[in-house]
Nucleic acid binder design. Structure first.
Length: 276
DNA sequence: AGCCTGCCCTGGCGGC
DNA sequence: TGCCGCCAGGGCAGGC
């Protein structure tokens, strides 16, 4: 499931594959993937050139000539790969962007949760979802004081607070479980009851974890692959996610898994402190 | 306004 | 072996 480190890895691997290419034709096999009007999406892309790819939180921003941007969210299982244009369509290929050099960018998504849409460059922050995003880990806005102040105003539990993209943009289920373990905070702790010293620690750990995960090319749990079809490496470093029933690497007590608002949540019942 | 629930989707797996 | 139901979960609509 791509979170910010995975999306950043996709951005880095995808860019050299498509940069400078000119779009010749677009095929949409499953129109619901296109959040904007899919006929317009197809027509407006033809003839445009891919200039660069940016990322904002978990969103890819594919920059095109003529001030156009494809806003793309991979959600759970979206993947991009570059193919020869006549490569047979995979069952889960939903969009093809064919270039003038006979290659094509394929968007593949088993669950069909991912979305893309075309906007005028510069207006992407008005897109539903992006408009409400909070600041990103390792950004200048994401200060210790920002995190502490924001959490102190939230009555929900810390697990939900960190998954809330309007508070911190880019974390998902895996990295939230990891960072809470790292900081020794129980996932059901109330956000506004986290003591200051833990708020500090949480801030630093979020930055370090995201930074390290990007260096390791993300985490491959289920099917995540980058644009070259390679897996990430961070899964080897996971301390709690996917380790239910195994001894905590810090204290040896068996890790437990619970549901928090429908999200699977793994934690150490011994060394993660609950603040209520 | 803030918070929570259900829904979108499909494949994989456990249980019988 | 086959079928059924459940689980995975990011983000959004809708409800309270």
């Amino acid at each position: 499931m791509p979170e910010m480190p995975e999306v950043e890895t996709v951005r880095r691997t995808l860019l050299p594959l498509v940069k400078g290419k000119t779009i010749q034709a677009v095929t949409v096999w499953y129109p619901k993937i296109i959040a904007s009007d899919s006929e317009q999406f197809i027509q407006q892309l033809v003839g445009k050139k891919i200039e660069t790819i940016d990322r904002y939180a978990k969103y890819l921003l594919i920059r095109l000539s003529d001030q156009l941007t494809i806003v793309s969210h991979l959600r759970m299982e979206g993947k991009y790969r570059l193919v020869e244009v006549n490569t047979p369509k995979d069952k889960h290929d939903h969009v093809q962007i064919a270039f003038t050099d006979k290659t094509a960018l394929r968007y593949n998504d088993v669950r069909k949760f991912g979305r893309m849409q075309l906007v005028k460059t510069g207006t992407e922050k008005e897109v539903t979802g992006i408009s409400k995003l909070g600041c990103e880990p390792n950004s200048s806005e994401f200060t210790t004081q920002y995190l502490i102040n924001t959490l102190s105003r939230k009555k929900k539990n810390i697990k939900n607070a960190l998954l809330d993209q309007t508070i911190v943009a880019g974390l998902g289920n895996i990295y939230v479980d990891e960072v809470l373990w790292q900081t020794k905070i129980h996932p059901l702790s109330l956000a506004n009851q986290i003591p200051q010293f833990q708020g500090h620690q949480l801030h630093d750990n979020i930055n370090e974890l995201i930074d390290l995960a990007i260096k390791k090319h993300g985490t491959t749990i289920h099917t995540y692959l980058d644009a070259n079809g390679d897996t990430g490496d961070f899964q080897k470093l996971l301390k709690v996610y996917g380790h239910k029933g195994e001894p905590c690497s810090r204290c040896g007590v068996l890790l437990e898994k619970i549901k928090v608002s429908g999200r699977g949540t793994t934690f150490c019942p011994n060394c993660q402190v609950i603040y209520k």
